[in-house]
């Protein structure tokens, strides 16, 4: 177990270096001069651009700049400063990460709940009306684009139903702690602002999970050990809980960990359509400004979350499935 963790950690370091280096290389391959954008685009003044090149270290070769970036990261634990706003990138990512985390974790609870409910009940009564309705939901869920869903939700809940109590905010984010003065804050406002984003974000995953869980449960119901449990005289409820679901839901652990890890890097569509200041929005803004430091900051956060969640999944899986041993 210890050796396993050490090996995984070494792999994570290697992966981290590869991902950040590739980000660097791609950035410098784009035919754009970052210093020009920093100084206001077409009207950029030469002395401003010269100063920017010096400040950002753009006169050095790529590998040297990458070395500097690594050195700063390791020694000062700093992601550097934004090319355009000169803000500390640690601070920018630190501001955006809780927004994305709120969206993703709340969304995950929602999609898992819906996926389990629809998946299990559809599997128990295949071809029934409930099953058909569930599968229609799945088809819509996997087909509808989050931006479209977001716009439709905004139109109905934010505009058409604005005189009803179910009217919900359609943009912005409310902090739980330390809300800026003059803005709504606290848990209630936080959840209230996230209702529509959660639903929008969860629909696709809920559909995918419902379909997978339905298939897994139906397959497990035909397993020999389920027949053994019935032959022992176990009541249906117990057969379902202790024998069917316990096995059918094993792959869900893997999927959930990987999906959450991936989504924590930024739920771009949902964040954009509801104007949430999360990592996805931050990344889009940074890319269009050629702000390497901020892009790199988001990439690092996303990479770390994927690495951490994958590790978590592996350890958790070894715990729930006795056939797996970490070596």
């Amino acid at each position: 177990m210890f050796r396993y963790l050490v090996r995984r950690l070494l792999w994570a370091v290697l992966l981290f270096i590869v991902v950040t280096f590739v980000t660097f290389v791609i950035f410098f391959m784009a035919p754009v001069a970052p210093e020009r954008l920093v100084c206001g685009g077409d009207q950029a003044k030469p002395q401003c651009m010269r100063a920017a090149i010096k400040r950002l270290g753009l006169n050095h070769p790529v590998y040297y700049q990458y070395g500097l970036f690594l050195k700063r990261l390791v020694l000062e634990r700093s992601l550097g400063h934004s090319f355009t706003t000169r803000q500390d990138v640690n601070h920018i990512v630190g501001q955006a990460a809780p927004v994305t985390a709120s969206l993703v974790l709340g969304g995950a609870i929602l999609w898992l709940g819906i996926g389990l409910l629809v998946g299990i009940f559809s599997a128990l009564r295949p071809r029934s009306l409930l099953d058909r309705a569930g599968m229609v939901f799945v088809l819509i869920g996997v087909s509808a684009h989050p931006v479209w869903i977001g716009l439709i939700f905004s139109y109905f809940f934010g505009y058409k139903l604005r005189n009803f109590p179910i009217h919900t905010p359609i943009a912005g984010y409310a902090h739980i702690f330390n809300a800026p003065p003059g803005q709504p804050g606290g848990v209630a406002q936080w959840a209230y602002h996230l209702i529509l984003p959660w639903c929008t974000f969860a629909i696709l995953f809920a559909a995918l999970y419902a379909r997978m869980i339905r298939a897994n449960v139906m397959e497990t119901m035909n397993e020999d050990f389920v027949r053994t449990a019935r032959a022992k005289g176990a009541p249906e409820g117990r057969v379902l809980r202790s024998h069917v679901l316990r096995n059918a839901l094993l792959p869900v652990v893997t999927m959930l960990g990987m999906d959450i890890g991936l989504a924590l890097g930024g739920a771009i569509f949902t964040e954009t359509v509801y104007n949430l200041p999360g990592l996805g929005n931050t990344a889009i803004l940074a890319v269009s400004n050629y702000d390497l430091a901020v892009v790199q900051g988001v990439v690092i956060f996303a990479t770390l979350s994927i690495i951490v969640f994958n590790l978590l999944v592996d350890v958790l899986y070894a715990w729930v499935d006795p056939r797996i041993r970490l070596t």
Binding site: D224, T228, A229, A231, S242, V320, P322
Partner: peptide, 14 residues
């Protein structure tokens, strides 16, 4: 009570 054909799959693996 009943014994089945395939002992490899007749017991719950978890």
């Amino acid at each position: 009570s009943m014994i089945f054909q395939d002992p490899m799959t007749s017991l719950n693996p978890v």
